[in-house]
């Protein structure tokens, strides 16, 4: 009996060795020669997951190899990024993440990677967010709200889906610039915050586009958006920039690969995913999510992230955003 088991072991070992040799044998062929693993840094079903899956279906046709999408959730993307950072940089393990996990999280708390461990391939979507109040409230513009807060210090409070998020920073930026004070009430996610503002428990909500149907239907009023450009559905609502505040929500969805991936492979992936973005089904989905289809290539995304990283560092200091104390 024991011998039988031993024989099976030998066969398995032999097969394993052969498989390990395979990549060496097929070295001469151009990338990609085997399926590419694409790890989405959030659980299935969210906006990042949905848009990535459509993009991957299109990209695998262009690359000629399957792109296998899997999800690793947790820690606002940092669990997955920590894993991918340790992968071999051969272009077969790539990740689709929100820039949050690369530029914000590492500055707020200890994570086992840094933004320099990754080479961006491209970014494909920029996320929208904005400030809403109930439509039966007297605040017609951001200025109304600011003036009310000035006269009644501490009376205005606003919900967001997380401390240290761009939506939180936008509000504190306004408060800092106008010299006013309002109270931040963080909620665990967009939906509870939305309930709070609809129920009149908080004055305002600063968050990504969960408020959309309610603004369209008329129960909430959109005062200002945080994007680079005005939203297509609401051309009359100003951005923060329009109102003279130098702040934009710079969160983008992007594809990245571990540092050290050969430039030729990065180039190939960049081209493939860029082409995939032109697919009408992808464009329609992003528009349905009310985000912007936005593209930057590898080089530009890298620079973009670098700038955003530095701006965020300045902002944390200026606005006194709490972060995890350094371990001694």
């Amino acid at each position: 009996m024991k011998q039988k088991g031993w024989k099976a072991g030998k066969i398995i070992l032999g097969c394993g060795l052969l498989l390990m040799l395979l990549p060496i044998i097929s070295f001469a062929q151009p990338y990609p020669t085997k399926p590419i693993n694409l790890i989405v840094t959030f659980p299935p079903g969210g906006t990042l997951d949905t848009s990535t899956r459509i993009l991957a279906i299109k990209a695998e046709k262009i690359l000629g190899q399957p792109v296998i999408v899997s999800n690793v959730g947790g820690g606002a993307g940092s669990v997955a990024l920590g894993q991918v950072a340790k992968k071999r940089p051969d272009g077969y393990d790539i990740t689709s993440c929100a820039s949050t996990g690369l530029i914000r999280i590492p500055q707020l708390r200890a994570v086992p990677y840094s933004h320099e461990d990754f080479v961006p391939i491209m970014h494909f979507t920029s996320v929208q967010s904005g400030l809403v109040v109930k439509s039966d409230s007297p605040y017609k513009t951001l200025k109304d709200l600011v003036e009310y807060a000035r006269k009644n210090p501490g009376k205005v409070n606003y919900a967001t889906s997380g401390a240290g998020s761009p939506m939180h920073m936008a509000m504190e930026y306004i408060a800092d610039k106008e010299g006013i004070q309002w109270t931040h009430v963080p909620y665990a996610g967009g939906a509870p915050g939305l309930t709070a503002v609809l129920g009149g428990h908080v004055t305002a909500m600063s968050d990504s586009t969960e408020w959309l149907p309610h603004v369209k239907e008329g129960s909430l009023r959109l005062l200002v958006t945080h994007g680079e450009r005005r939203m297509k559905s609401f051309p009359n609502v100003p951005t923060l920039r329009d109102l003279g505040f130098d702040f934009i929500n710079e969160t983008v969805f992007m594809i990245a690969t571990p540092k050290g991936t050969p430039p030729a492979i990065v180039k190939k992936l960049e081209e493939a995913f860029h082409k995939a973005m032109e697919d009408p089904e992808f464009v329609r989905t992003i528009q349905n999510l009310e985000f912007d289809v936005a593209y930057r290539n590898s080089e530009d995304t890298k620079k973009y992230l670098e700038d955003a990283y530095n701006r965020f560092a300045v902002m944390i200091k200026k606005l006194n955003i709490t972060k995890e104390p350094e371990k001694k």
Partner: peptide
């Protein structure tokens, strides 16, 4: 389900 592949790709 997305099981890890391991060294031998199995």
């Amino acid at each position: 389900c997305q099981f890890p592949d391991g060294l031998f790709g199995l």
